[in-house]
Each structure stands twice: as C-alpha cells, then as structure tokens.
Amino acid sequence: MNKSKAFTRFAQAAARFTGKPMCFAIAALLIVIWAATGPIFKFNNTWQLVINTGTTIITFLMVFLIQNTQNRDTEALQIKLDELIRATRDASNTLLALEELDDDALEKQRKRFAHLARKAREACASDDEPNAVDDAQR
C-alpha cells in the first residue's frame, strides 16, 4: 500500500472518529480532569502550558485531516455533478469540470445563469402556467 492510500485511510478513519459524540465526550472529560487538577498544581504555568500545548497540537493536526477529507468530498461531488450534467440530454456539456476554469470564465457562466434565472422569474410572474420557468430557460 502506498503512502497516499495509507494517509487517505487514516484521514478518513480519524474524521469518522472525531465526528462522533464519543470523541467529543472524551475531549470534554479531558478538559474537566485538567480543570480539576488545577488546585493540585496551584494553577501554575506548567499546568496551563499542558492544556495550551495539547490543544494547539491537536488543532494543528486536525486542520490537515479536515482539509484532506473536504478535498476528497468536494472532488467526489464534482465528479457526480459532472456525470449528471453529461447524462442529462438538455444540459450543456460546457458546464463539465467548471471548477477548473479561471475566475473570468466562472464569472461569465455565473452571469449567464443569473440572466436565465431573471428571465424565468419574469416569465413566471407574467404567466401562471406551470411550465413558464422551463420555457423561459430554453
């Protein structure tokens, strides 16, 4: 198994675990235990440093795990949307892999669809027919 697959499997497992109520309960329990030990350690700097260092390290590592799982989810969603566009007869295949376009091309597409939406709303407002929105888009 290569390193990329191993990291992906680890990131997915970590994301599943950390998203469960049990993980939250464990984290909350650790905070309660830390707070309860404050009087024992006289609330000294080392006692505070333990929680600060621990939470910083965990937060730092979780950022990368969350970003990895979000990237994978977004890529999978884009592939699914591309397949729906490709399989829909009246859909424009120019919308496939839209996320790969530069900002100017994306803005051009956004304006195109905003114009179509305006036309559809106007047609719907002036015509009580149920297909007015569909007709205005064609």
Rank of each mutant, 00 (worst) to 15 (best):
K3V: 08
S4A: 12
A6V: 10
A11F: 02
A13R: 09
A15M: 08
A15L: 08
R16Y: 12
T18I: 11
F24W: 11
A25R: 02
I26T: 08
A27F: 04
A28T: 02
L30R: 05
I31V: 11
V32H: 01
I33L: 02
T37M: 03
T37N: 00
P39G: 12
I40V: 08
I40K: 02
K42N: 15
N45A: 14
N45E: 15
W47G: 02
L49R: 14
N52H: 13
T53W: 07
G54K: 03
T56C: 08
T56G: 12
I57S: 10
T59S: 13
F60E: 14
F60T: 06
M62W: 12
V63P: 04
V63S: 10
F64H: 01
L65Y: 13
I66S: 10
Q67I: 04
T69V: 09
Q70W: 09
Q70V: 05
Q70T: 10
R72I: 10
R72N: 14
A76K: 06
A76D: 14
L77E: 15
I79V: 12
L81C: 13
E83I: 06
R86L: 03
R86P: 01
T88S: 03
T88G: 00
R89N: 11
D90N: 07
A91N: 01
L98I: 03
D102F: 00
D103H: 03
A105K: 02
K108Q: 11
R110G: 06
H115S: 08
A117L: 06
R118G: 05
K119D: 07
E122M: 07
E122V: 05
E122K: 08
C124I: 07
S126P: 09
E129H: 07
A132V: 03
